[in-house]
Simulated assay, not measured.
Amino acid sequence: MPPAASAPRLDRLRHWFAARHGLALEACDPTLAAGDASFRRYYRAGLPGGETRILMDAPPAQEDSRPFVAIAEAWEAAGLPVPHLYGVDLEAGFLELQDLGDTPLSAYFDDEASALAWHKRAIELLHRLQAAAPTEGLPAYDAALLGRELDLFPDWCLSWLGLPTPPSWPALRQVLIDAALAQLRVAVHRDFDAMNLMVQGKTLTLIDFQDAVAGPPSYDLISLLRGRYQRFDAATFAAFVDDFRERAQAEGRLPADLEAATWRHQVDAMAAQRALKVLGIFCRLTHRDHKAGYLARLPHFLDHLRDSLAGLPAHGDFRAWLEGDFAPALSAALAREGVA
């Protein structure tokens, strides 16, 4: 949202917050705390006693806040760490939330030991989420949604690069969908990323969960392990994946007879699906939504795609196309855009 368009809404947000707390308007001076890839903006506002709150501005014409509110209430009732909702005006698109500070999990990835320790904490939270969060009321992560996400890759990434969809694409696309649908259903955050896990002391809190669905247990795991900040070596990644399977089987979230090799195939397929989706989304954010900084992340997710496809040896034709056609075209396009 451009600043000129946000100014009237910020003034309305000030009036709303002031009225809620019986404050003089001049005492309300929200400051921008964060924006994201959507039209939502987050502001920090103070109360007379020194407590602060986060005010979400989600313009109703662009953002439907009802899923966020419903999920926040359901997950809080289930004992999960989510920001408390103090006030909601869905018609205006204003929410008043608990202030969780400014420190996301990604701030703790300075060294390998710290990154590993915090990833273990995050996976512990993921186990809690899958065990406690209800799936009732969540949209299904079905074949149609999985397919729409995959199609972001040819529709936005390949079209930007001027590349035709390779002949090997339909077969890979179907295998990735089938592998996701073969898994049991749990509540899926759908962006279980280190930017969406806020740190207070040693506690992690979930944010940005409005797109949650009922879907495969592997999705949030690979959102974390093959996200925007880390690229683990094969042995470390495999250890995380195997440990997750063993606990999820013990707790009944994965079938007791699920073999390690089958689970790893499902994880790699899910990771490939997400990497392809992200490559498409980042191109769309750049070229349709005019948001900066996303092209620079494309090589990182290309590496994630390579790692994921390494576990899917039956799709050698697509891997050959990726290296022979896609990777050089991407490098050339980024050079033209001035992206290092």
Rank of each mutant, 00 (worst) to 15 (best):
I207Y: 01
L172T: 02
T286C: 03
R284L: 01
P217C: 07
L204S: 07
V69W: 10
G338C: 12
G324F: 09
A272Q: 04
L298I: 12
R128P: 05
D111K: 07
P164L: 11
H300L: 13
L126S: 07
R245V: 07
T203D: 15
A171W: 06
M56Q: 09
L206T: 01
F237A: 12
F318M: 05
V278H: 01
Q230W: 11
R9E: 08
F109D: 04
G201E: 04
H84A: 15
D243Y: 02
S308W: 08
R336C: 14
A34E: 04
W169C: 00
A296D: 14
F244S: 09
S308H: 06
W263S: 13
D211V: 01
L10E: 13
P139M: 02
H119E: 09
K291D: 08
D220L: 09
G227N: 07
R12C: 09
L298G: 03
A140M: 06
L163S: 05
I207S: 00
A113N: 12
E246N: 12
Y42V: 10
E251W: 05
E136T: 14
T135D: 08
R173K: 11
L309A: 02
L279T: 02
R228H: 15
P255D: 05
H127Y: 15
Q62N: 13
F301V: 02
A320T: 14
L55A: 10
P216H: 02
L100H: 05
A235I: 13
P60L: 13
V241N: 08
L224S: 02
L90S: 11
T286S: 06
L225E: 08
L330K: 03
E26M: 09
P83R: 06
W156M: 01
E251Y: 09
D191T: 01
V213R: 00
Q62S: 15
P3H: 07
D111F: 10
L116H: 13
W169N: 00
W75P: 00
A180L: 08
P83C: 10
Q249F: 08
W118I: 03
L225D: 04
G311A: 04
A19E: 14
P216L: 07
N196S: 04
P299H: 12
Q266H: 14
Y108S: 14
A58T: 07
A335M: 14
H290A: 15
G50F: 11
V241L: 02
L150H: 01
V199N: 02
L163W: 10
E136F: 03
L100T: 10
G162D: 10
G280P: 00
A18W: 04
P134D: 08
C283P: 03
L322R: 08
L172M: 05
R66F: 11
R9C: 00
T31E: 15
K291G: 08
A332M: 13
A238D: 14
V241C: 11
I207D: 03
I222L: 13
A61F: 12
S38R: 07
Q183P: 02
